[in-house]
């Protein structure tokens, strides 16, 4: 625990977040780039362990990175990345439209909420992966399976957040707009939508993260294209370094898409933080 920190009187350390007088040791810890150091240490440890222990499932980090570069240089790999991206973009776009519309309807109309609530919640908490064989049985090896997997992974969290956002719009705001004679359409456009934006965007970002997971899982399970298929193939060849390299690509993809979503979020909800 905090014993790792250079603290002179560990026994007298008060509960950390308490408003105790600030002591110099904290400013030192604050200035150290702990995150970077920790990441560096972890990488080194991995490298050393990989080299010395010679375990098949733990290739040295340098080897993984080398494989990453090699893979990115290959035409076929790039084609697979594009195929994955395509499924991600289309699937996520469908989730977005569907999730926002259904969520908004559920938030606005009690009857719609009452009708759909249990299904949305059940599918939100149930392990979505179990549906993949079902989709495969229905759609076969086609794009229908890949897209529907992305959609079921992403859509429910978008629905739930949108619904909650609409339902929790401050009624005082709506009453205020009514008092100024605003029309229903005006209230939706100028009050409800902006007011629900932070929660909606949170749902969209969660949905995007889940879409990436759905994309890769679907590809691993049922198709022969995309990053997931690549990972599955290297896995069956026991080329663990390449499996890690593909995972790294997916991680980068997740980070980039999340960053993009964050940019949009920041633009739309700058007022809220």
């Amino acid at each position: 625990m905090a014993a790792a920190a250079p603290q002179p009187t560990a026994s007298a350390a008060p509960f950390d977040p308490a408003p105790a007088p600030r002591r110099p040791r904290r400013s030192l810890a604050r200035r150290l780039p702990v995150e970077g150091l920790s990441l560096l240490a972890g990488s080194l440890l991995w490298e050393i362990a990989g080299r010395t222990m010679d375990l098949p499932w733990l290739p040295p980090l340098s080897m993984i990175l080398a494989d990453l570069v090699t893979l990115l240089g290959q035409e076929s790999v790039r084609a697979n990345i594009m195929a994955s991206l395509q499924a991600l973009v289309i699937g996520f776009a469908i989730s977005l439209v569907f999730g926002l519309v259904v969520g908004a309807l559920m938030g606005r109309f009690r009857s719609v909420e009452a009708a759909l609530d249990i299904y949305v919640n059940a599918l939100l908490v149930a392990p979505t992966i179990i549906l993949i064989p079902v989709f495969f049985a229905i759609f076969g090896l086609g794009d229908g399976t890949r897209l529907s997997v992305v959609v079921v992974y992403a859509v429910f969290v978008i629905i739930i957040n949108t619904m909650t956002a609409i339902k929790t719009v401050d009624p005082a705001m709506v009453e205020m707009a009514r008092a100024f004679g605003a029309s229903e359409a005006f209230i939706i456009r100028k009050v409800m939508i902006p007011a629900s934006m932070p929660l909606v965007m949170a749902g969209v970002r969660l949905g995007l993260g889940r879409a990436v997971k759905g994309m890769i899982t679907g590809e691993m399970l049922v198709t022969f294209v995309g990053l997931g298929a690549l990972a599955a193939r290297f896995g069956s060849q026991f080329d663990m370094s390449k499996v890690f390299a593909v995972s790294l690509i997916v991680l980068i993809l997740a980070a980039v898409t999340n960053w993009l979503a964050q940019l949009v979020d920041d633009r739309l909800t700058r007022w809220a933080d």
């Binding site: 005082a172 707009a177 004679g181 100028k190 009050v191 007022w271």
Partner: peptide, 28 residues
């Protein structure tokens, strides 16, 4: 349009600037 309300909880739109808030009634 002949009546306007001032609310106890202010009911200002948190995403709108002072200028936009003051102009809200005119915007409607």
């Amino acid at each position: 349009p002949d009546r306007a309300v001032v609310f106890q909880s202010f009911a200002l739109l948190p995403w709108a600037t002072v200028l936009e808030n003051v102009a809200f009634g005119l915007e409607t």
